[in-house]
Design a protein around this nucleic acid. Structure first.
Lengths: 129, 129
DNA sequence: TATTGACTTGGAGTTAGCTCCAAATGGTAA
DNA sequence: TTACCATTTGGAGCTAACTCCAAGTCAATA
């Protein structure tokens, strides 16, 4: 059992973000003690870690909310959840591909800059010019 | 020479986005004809294509504005531009790495779902249960 | 008992990156 | 000439995803 302060620290997510995630259903509701204070279980932490990971890869909040919703409906939604994940995987693969291409382009561009800088330095060293 | 309508079509960017990019300095200023209408050159198109590519990989608008600004200052900024690109390349590499890990995780999760679904179907077919 | 400090809530505010709008203009077709 | 259409501008509005705030509650400490 952890407090929101500890969970915030552990996952490097602000307390506000943790409350926000819960409010919008991005993580299942966290239990409170008698005085209304959140008590995060291991299970809650796993959700948070999972969501943080997926968000970090750019999966939209909206889609993850849907996933959590399906999960809470039980085994009837196994297929739907699988389909959702497959769709997101496809998107992710495409984004990675796009980024890899851009990376190649950046590599090339940087190389060209290095050449240009060397060429410029040579020019400067040439006497009377 | 192309009109904004043609450029918009060609790069699949709205006319509003093209004007917006120019307004904020994300692409250099485009020349107008006597009546103030934009006339995009080949050069302009190359900038647009470059910016679209970099934005697609998630480079922030702010950083790209800086790059364009440096470019317009001429050869004095070769080194600064190179450094800027290297920094962005590093960020990009990290993001790709993160996404790849998430992709692996999604693959694993989907596999587990497939197993779970098969298991569930077997259960359903067992008589009287 | 009074104060402190972590926590709660609902709601407002912020940021990045567009997207839309209204009013004005200029070229072209009927 | 009149009507139409694409374009212009500055500025307002929008969406996603937080982030901040004020007012209130509770447990623990001085």
């Amino acid at each position: 059992m952890m407090t929101i302060a500890e969970v915030s620290e552990k996952f490097d997510l602000s307390q506000d973000t943790l409350r926000y995630y819960e409010r919008i259903g991005l993580i299942p509701r966290v239990n409170r003690n008698k005085s209304g204070v959140r008590n995060y279980t291991e299970e809650d932490c796993k959700w948070i870690e999972f969501i943080k990971c997926m968000r970090g890869a750019g999966l939209p909040v909206e889609v993850l909310i849907e996933y959590v919703g399906l999960f809470q409906q039980g085994d009837e939604t196994l297929e739907a959840r699988k389909e959702l994940l497959i769709e997101q995987r496809n998107q992710l693969i495409m984004r990675i591909e796009e980024m890899k291409k851009t990376l190649e382009r950046l590599n090339y561009k940087i190389e060209r800059y290095e050449q240009a800088i060397v060429a410029k330095e040579k020019t400067l060293k040439r006497p009377e010019n």
